[in-house]
């Protein structure tokens, strides 16, 4: 079954890292939400996240879901971006021996998955080692 509509709804976040900052307490959220979990306020300001951060933790996937089999083994990580937002994504272009908690990373636009041979191509963000 096609996931075009679901994918399309996430384009502002997947492509452009569009997030929100609570107008009351300043907490940042990615993806945006209706109620601030910090202070309960409902008013937010749109922000765009930066594309640099540091690796908080990681793992290497050697047996992946069917749509990711072609890419195994690959690394997944949780990264804290400058500004404090934490996000989970694949870490590309990295030699596993070089993976290290605290290593600087940046975001690159990559193909995340394909819906089989005839479905849509899904794009989004991955981390790569920062120079």
């Amino acid at each position: 079954m096609s996931t075009s509509a679901k994918y399309w709804r996430g384009i502002p976040q997947r492509y452009r890292l569009e997030a929100e900052r609570c107008a009351s307490c300043g907490m940042e959220f990615f993806p945006p939400r209706l109620v601030c979990s910090g202070c309960g306020a409902r008013k937010f300001m749109p922000i765009t996240l930066g594309d640099h951060g540091k690796l908080l933790t990681y793992t290497v996937i050697r047996v992946g879901p069917s749509e990711f089999c072609e890419q195994t083994p690959y690394a997944m990580g949780i990264v804290e971006l400058e500004g404090g937002v934490r996000m989970t994504a694949q870490i590309a272009d990295v030699d596993f021996d070089d993976l290290e908690v605290g290593m600087p990373v940046r975001i690159e636009f990559r193909k995340i998955r394909e819906e089989g041979q005839a479905g849509i191509l899904c794009y989004g963000y991955k981390f790569v080692p920062a120079d």
Binding site: Q90, A92, R110, K111, I112
Partner: peptide
């Protein structure tokens, strides 16, 4: 190119 790279991903990065 890696399996997750194509004309679209490279175009976006070059354009950045």
């Amino acid at each position: 190119p890696s399996p997750d790279q194509d004309v679209i991903t490279m175009s976006v990065e070059a354009t950045k």
